[in-house]
Structure formats: structure tokens, C-alpha cells
Amino acid sequence: MNMERIIFLLLFGSTAIWFAWRVFMTKSMIRSALSLLASMVAIGILFLVMQAEFLGVLHIMMMATEMTIMAIFMMMFMMDPGGMGDMDMSHQKKYSSVFAFLSGASYAAAILFTQWPITADAVPAPAQQNHDLGIELMQRSMMIFETAGVSILVAMIAATATALSFNSVNK
């Protein structure tokens, strides 16, 4: 029982939930993308609270770029990116909120009724963690790591090929 950690977890957890809620409740699309960024940063800080330093910093770094790119795509593709026209961009609200509540509640129930085998092992120091993660990546999980890399390459090529306009191909 670590009071400090509980306070941080509650604080940043509620920040993450609040901003995640704002994502779908605001009319302005840039605001919604940057709320998602704030929520993701709060998740990254939760990683840091749980002493996963590398993953936390990596997550915070990646999300900055990813969510800003999301913001520009929102602005390009939406009819009303500034939210000044007060358009409603949602459908089947009742059905989706019931389903969301059911899935969230069932997970919460599963969490509460499980006996978690908490371990007393101490977490390695951050430098040791980086080392161990590197060894894991390059030995046991190397195949998975390489697969992830190759799938990024494939996705890049596929996405570029998909996004090219028909006219430029025909030229």
C-alpha cells in the first residue's frame, strides 16, 4: 500500500477519463483530437507512475505526433472542423451508450471478482529495465519485433498506394 502512488494514479486516471470523455463531447474537431492527446499523455504519466519509464516517455513522444496528424486529417475531412455550425456528428447514441456501459461494467465486474496474484518482486531500476527490454527484444521476441517492423513497412506502402489519386496513376 503506497498512499503517494494511489493519489497519483487517481489524479492522472481521472484526468485521462475526463479528457477521453471530452473527445466525443466537443463540437470542435481540433479540440477533440487534442483532448485525445491530453488523455494519452495522462496514460503515459500513469506508465511513469508505475515505473515503466521507457514506455511512458515513448508513449508521450509518439502520441504528440500521432494526435496532431489526426487533428490535421480531421480538419481536412470534416464538414465543420471548427464546430461553429453546431452539427451533430453522431448516430445510434442510445444503442452505443448501452453497449459501452455494458462492456465497461462487465470488465469492472471481472476485475473486482478476480483474486489477483500480486507479487512482492521489486521492479528493476529504469536503466536495468532498458537493458532487459533490449535483451528481450533481441533474443526471445526478436521474431515478433521483426514482424512488427515489416508490418509497418507493408502498411506504409499499402497506405501510400491506396491514397494515391486515380488520375495521377493514369498519367
Binding site: 485521462a16 477519463i17 477521453a20 470523455w21 473527445v23 466525443f24 488523455s39 496514460i43 456528428m89 453522431s90 448516430h91 445510434q92 447514441k93 444503442y95 452505443s96 451508450s97 453497449f99 459501452a100 456501459f101 462492456s103 465497461g104 461494467a105 470488465y107 469492472a108 476485475i111
Partner: peptide, 14 residues
């Protein structure tokens, strides 16, 4: 779990 629920809501309702 709460974040997941919000994500499900967003993916279904938008």
C-alpha cells in the same frame, strides 16, 4: 475499463 467503455461508445456512436 472506463477508458475502454468510452472508446467503445466513441467507435459506435460517431
Amino acid at each position: 475499463a472506463v477508458l475502454f467503455g468510452i472508446g467503445v461508445y466513441g467507435a459506435l456512436s460517431q
